[in-house]
Design a protein around this nucleic acid. Structure first.
Lengths: 192, 192
DNA sequence: GTGTATACTTACCTGTAAGTAAGCAATGGA
DNA sequence: TCCATTGCTTACTTACAGGTAAGTATACAC
């Protein structure tokens, strides 16, 4: 049964959710297999080790990021929609139960992460920071935004803020995430 | 051997370190016991369950926070040293290997945390936000600081930023934490 | 010296984690 | 029709998690 590799995709989906909810060491193959109604070994068939699974996930994130930002990275363009996209993405992911961001999920277990996953995570993070830096530069040039400090540093700050906010929101509810996004808006002079 | 309860303190110390490095589910009694050169059951003697240990840790954090801020909370006072204290504390803790902040450590595993620990974490977080809000209010009133947005919202933003920064710094090194703190300084008009 | 509390150790239990080896059922060529 | 590949399942193994029960050594109280 099942189309080409339906199961593989379902595994990735559930794993992505669990990774962001509980971190790399916070979920097991069992969590995935029971949810899909398959046996544990079925997961091992598609992803022999948990490392393989993690690598596939980081790869997927990075792919998604690149796809959604490639046009902007290549030709520039208005920065506001990029920024709004980031806010929307963050909020909607949180509401869907995918609580902490991929960096956060992997950062907690960073020491005992397999080397390859570590490297992949570093790359993913660089990509994200570079993209946001570019957005902020563009936004400042075109007077869409108005903020203090240099764009690269500000980009780090914003990503850190969103990441932290997602975690704090887990403890005390969604309002915190909303408040933080509001604050970011104020600080870059983006009137909603 | 051992003074009154030397071992108990050593357990708390190591546990605090491990909690902040790896999250609540990322360390085991074994990690602590082998480090101290005692048997596993010795830890259970002092803290029957891991819940008890977590509660003790959160309690300790909260106690420390209250001790260090009680004078300010009671009588107000200059806000700048409080802020500088937060920065110093954050940086020094990070350098000592205690990487992610207590919220972060507990947020990742928040779903499957025992109820009591959850409640304690919520309280601890409220305390922290309240304190920082107070600091920002005072700083604004006395023109020590100069920032956009309302103090409570800004307090959330700063805490989120520091928390996120600690995690990102794990992935890409201390510089990120330093950059973020610099950015916070700029944004509250605090010239170092 | 007897008793009792403290601070452990030894030895164990149950559950669950990641991972593997071998088998089987369906599909799609040659 | 045979055969190989794909996508699983069954049935394990090893390691380690949290936790417990019972015993032991030391110290101090009376």
């Amino acid at each position: 049964m099942g189309r080409i590799t339906d199961t593989r995709d379902q595994i990735m989906d559930k794993a992505a959710e669990l990774l962001m909810q509980r971190g790399f060491n916070g979920f097991s193959y069992r969590d995935i297999s029971t949810h899909l109604g398959v046996k544990n070994a079925a997961i091992h068939y598609h992803f022999p080790s948990k490392t393989d699974l993690a690598l596939a996930l980081v790869d997927e994130y990075q792919q998604t990021l690149r796809n959604q930002t490639s046009a902007f990275m290549a030709y520039g363009g208005p920065a506001t929609p990029q920024m709004e996209g980031l806010f929307m993405f963050t909020e909607s992911q949180f509401c869907m139960g995918r609580c902490i961001c991929p960096f956060g999920a992997l950062a907690v277990d960073f020491d005992d992460l397999p080397d390859e996953v570590r490297t992949a995570t570093e790359h993913f993070m660089s990509d994200s920071v570079n993209w946001l830096t570019r957005v902020l530069e563009t936004g400042k040039e075109k007077s869409e935004f108005n903020f203090k400090g240099d764009p690269a540093q500000k980009a780090l700050g914003i990503l850190a803020m969103l990441q932290g906010a997602r975690q704090m929101a887990r403890i005390q509810g969604t309002d915190i995430l909303k408040a933080v996004i509001k604050q970011i808006r104020i600080e870059i002079g983006l009137n909603s």
